[in-house]
């Protein structure tokens, strides 16, 4: 069985779509952050696979994946700190209850 880059891209598309659905559908702030992580991982998988198949010696995809990991680790740290700060103020992390700015 031959597994080409298309298989990896298809898998990344499935993971990204699932993450997109989770980010929209879930009502808990922590669950939305988990879905965002899933989307970031799908993009990383795409970059590593295409880098391996198309330009294996350049490794640009792997280097970019390292930077993506840095950004997504920073994002998850800030996001969870924000969730904690919101929880301290409102005693809830439900997205439906964060409606202070609602007109």
């Amino acid at each position: 069985m031959q597994v080409g880059p298309s298989a990896f891209m298809a898998l990344a598309a499935v993971l990204f779509s699932l993450g997109l659905y989770g980010a929209v559908a879930r009502k808990s702030a922590v669950m939305v952050l988990m879905s965002l992580e899933l989307m970031a991982v799908a993009v990383s998988l795409n970059m590593v696979a295409l880098s391996r198949f198309v330009t294996p010696t350049e490794m640009t995809g792997q280097v970019f994946t390292i930077f993506t990991m840095v950004v997504s680790a920073a994002e998850i740290g800030l996001g969870l700190a924000l969730v904690l700060a919101i929880y301290r103020q409102t005693r809830s992390i439900e997205l439906t209850r964060m409606d202070t700015l609602k007109g």
Binding site: V70, A73, A74, L80, A81, L84, A85
Partner: peptide
């Protein structure tokens, strides 16, 4: 990237501290 991580971690500690 290392600077981004440092700033993000300091900000995370700052945000999540007890008032």
């Amino acid at each position: 990237a290392s600077l981004v991580l440092l700033v993000a971690l300091v900000a995370a500690v700052w945000w999540s501290r007890e008032e």
